[in-house]
Each structure stands twice: as structure tokens, then as C-alpha cells.
Nucleic acid binder design. Structure first.
Lengths: 220, 220
DNA sequence: CGCTGTACTATACAGTGTACGTTAGGGAGG
DNA sequence: CCTCCCTAACGTACACTGTATAGTACAGCG
């Protein structure tokens, strides 16, 4: 997190401002193109000024992640437990789609931070209330989280690839060069595979599979 | 893929050798620490020599990925379709655990390549034979793939973090600093959450949920 | 033999994260 | 008020990255 010894933040900078600007830059230029030097330049400041507030780049990433996780909506009350789970998963997914950098931030760093714990608390509470014991709730939480993370990261990745015309063209041609003799099913299902790469229906398909499986083993 | 115009590979180098050495380096030093210059040095060659065989770093990554995907075992015959799916998913997971770089390679680049298609062919064939129509097979394939990718990448990520004592200590302390008043369920389930982060049981738990859900909607 | 094509080298550039030492300006104590 | 100190921010520097470009030496073919 931030160092926050700042009894006297002299003027221009603050952790808040740095995190918000970093987020803006990541979304404008792409997460991979983000650099501390670019961020410092955007803030009109030398690169080393940032090290007063964050001990390194990963520390800043963690702060940005927690900043985003604060936007995950709270669990809705007065609905079926399955719809509560659905709401949490969809909420996280929607946030990842809206802020693609979140996918990379969640996948490349361990979970920590206040807001991340808040989201976990909501989901775990739903599962416990639905009757799952401690172990099942923990296992289910991990399963749901990794599913949302994997499915949505993949979707974002593919969407990014589709926007790069050069990469997209190469992908299509290599796809079509696959021998129909060697891989008949892949060639046969190519349209369906292309269509089911991402989208709300695809996400809900997998989520519903998980929920159906959960329903079967829910105690009473 | 490789450029492979090499009618006369003068002496030392070849695509095969480069890919194998790259893989060794990634596993020895960690995927993030891998660099083209380090690879070239290991091969006793200038950095630019690699560009005769690969047009850039990503192209090399794709070759390494396909090299690894060739190690995914074939689908076992003469068992239940669910066990076939289980075998494919577990095989891919085992390979990712054995070669952690595969997780990053799969997650950060689009699927392409001969061996990747082979794995897809196997799984899709199983699903079609089990009675799923084209769309369901494609959706299920994507769901299973993203689940395996997400769950296993996460597991690898957490295992790496656990090996870094500094990061692990910081994670524990921030975990324990969470207020039991604000996040009662998280604090209560902390042991279970720590225990269910990874491991074969955790992976199979989620996989079985998916398979149970699939069974319910399998035609006849 | 000379010519062409190519495996590899050498040099260079623009960029990265960050360690280290310095400067400047506000708050607190005399 | 003056002084001292603390620290936010600066400047410089280093070791590194991927790769564009130009050059070199050797294989095979006429």
C-alpha cells in the first residue's frame, strides 16, 4: 500500500492523484504500455517523485487494484443465493471488462488489500448463508474466483487481439491452414468456436454449470 | 512460428535448440526474468542471431508454447466421457504445474499452433461423442479451458508468492490485520481459504462441479 | 573463379525500473 | 526572528530491455 508518512505533502502530489492518473493512463494507452516514467511525465514530475508514495511499481499496481475493487457492487439482498452469487460474479466480470487492466492486476499479483477482502467477505457470506460448511464455502469461493478471472481475462485477451488487424489476420490464416484431415472436429466447429469466445452468454454458460453443480451438493 | 527458411543452418543454431534452451532458461530463472539477451548469451551468440529464426520475442514465445503443448497426453480411450474430460483437463494442468511458464504463455497470447489444435481436437471430439451439439461442445470447450487456465495459473502464482519469504510475510500480516468486525467471514474462514488455494483436491472440486452441471444438460 | 543469398556480428537507439546523492522549502524549537 | 531538520521532489546514473540497421564471412551454384 502507500507509504503515507506524508505529514506535509508539500503540494502537487498525493497517493490518490497518482493512482487515479495511473489508472487513466493504463486505460488510455494499454496496461502493457504503462510506465512509471510516463506516469511521472503526465503528472509533470520526475520519475523518482513517485517513490515517495510507493515503494516500487508493484506496490503502485496493488494500490490501483484495490482502487478498482472498491467499485465492485455490494451483494444484493432479498434474492435467491444463486442470484446473489451470479450478481457478484457478473459484477466483477463487468468491472474487469470496463477496466481491462484489472484482469492483469488480479492475475499477476496475490490478493490483498481492504477492498479485495470486502468482495471476498460478500461472496463467502452468501455461501455460508446458503448452507455450505467452512471448507465447501472456501473451495467454492476459490473456484468461482478463478473461473471469473480465467474466463474474463481470456475474453479480454481475445478482444484485444481482434482489434489488432495484423494479429487477427495471422490468426485467421493459421486457423484455416489446419488440415481438415488431421483436425476434423476443430475445422468443423470453427464458426462455433469463434462465436463462443467471450460474450455474456458464454460467461453465463460456464457460471450456470458451476451453479448447477453447486445446487446438487448444497446441504438441505 | 519459426521462419525456417534455413536451407543452410551454418552450424550452432536451430529453431529446436533455441526453443529448448529458452524453455530451460525460463524454468531455471523464472519466466519474468527471461530475456532474449540472456538466451543469446546462453547459446554463445549475439542477441540478433535469434532474429534469423524468430521474427520477435512473441514469436519465440509461441514456439515455446507449442513445444510444450505437444506434451499434453492424448485422450484415453475406453473410459467414460467424463473421465476423458477429466484426463484432458488434469493432463493440461499437470503440464502447467511442471512448466510454470506455460501458464503465462497460454494466458498472454492467443491460441494458435499445431499442437494446441491437437489438444482442442481431442477435447472437442470427446464432447461431440458424448452427445453435445456443435454449440454446446464449443461453449463447453471454452469453459473448461478457461477454468483450467484460471485455476492453475492462480495456483502457480500463489505458490510462487509463497516461496518468496518477504512477500509471504507481508501477505500474512496484511491478512491478519483485517478487522474481524468488518470482515467476520473472511477472518473466520482464513485457515480454510489458505488451505484451499491450490492443490489437486481444489482443482477437482471445481472440475467436478462443471462436470456435474454438464451431466444435467447432456442430451440423452 | 565470381556471384548471390544467408547465418551471424556489431553498433546503436529508445526505452525501462530504480539506487544514490542533492536541493529546496515548510514546521518546530530556540 | 533565526535556525535546524525533515522530507518532497529533482537530477544523474546504471544496468538492463527489445530490436532496427548495417556490415561481415562463408555456403552453394553458375
Amino acid at each position: 500500500m502507500s507509504v503515507t508518512k506524508s505529514r506535509t505533502p508539500r503540494n502537487t502530489l498525493s497517493s490518490e492523484l497518482i493512482v487515479r492518473t495511473a489508472l487513466d493512463l493504463m486505460e488510455a494507452k494499454g496496461t502493457d504500455a504503462f510506465s512509471l516514467r510516463g506516469l511521472a511525465a503526465e503528472l509533470g514530475v520526475g520519475p523518482m517523485a513517485l517513490y515517495t508514495y510507493f515503494r516500487n511499481k508493484d506496490d503502485l499496481y496493488d494500490a490501483v487494484r484495490d482502487h478498482l475493487m472498491a467499485l465492485v457492487p455490494p451483494v444484493p439482498a432479498d434474492v435467491d443465493w444463486k442470484d446473489q452469487v451470479r450478481a457478484v460474479c457478473r459484477g466483477l466480470r463487468a468491472l474487469m471488462l470496463q477496466h481491462p487492466c484489472l484482469a492483469q492486476l488480479l492475475g499477476s499479483r496475490p490478493l490483498s488489500g481492504h477492498e479485495t477482502a470486502r468482495v471476498a467477505e460478500g461472496l463467502l457470506g452468501v455461501l455460508r448463508s446458503a448452507g455450505f460448511d467452512a471448507e465447501a464455502a472456501a473451495r467454492t469461493h476459490t473456484t468461482l474466483f478463478t473461473y471469473v478471472l480465467g474466463a474474463t481475462s481470456w475474453e479480454i485477451q481475445m478482444a484485444a487481439e481482434r482489434r489488432d488487424p495484423e494479429a487477427w489476420r495471422r490468426l485467421r490464416t493459421t486457423m484455416e491452414s489446419l488440415s481438415a484431415k488431421e483436425f476434423p472436429t476443430v475445422v468443423d466447429l470453427a464458426p462455433e468456436l469463434a462465436r463462443t469466445t467471450g460474450g455474456d452468454e458464454q460467461f453465463d454458460y460456464g457460471l450456470d454449470l458451476l451453479l448447477a453443480g453447486l445446487e446438487l451438493r448444497r446441504p438441505s
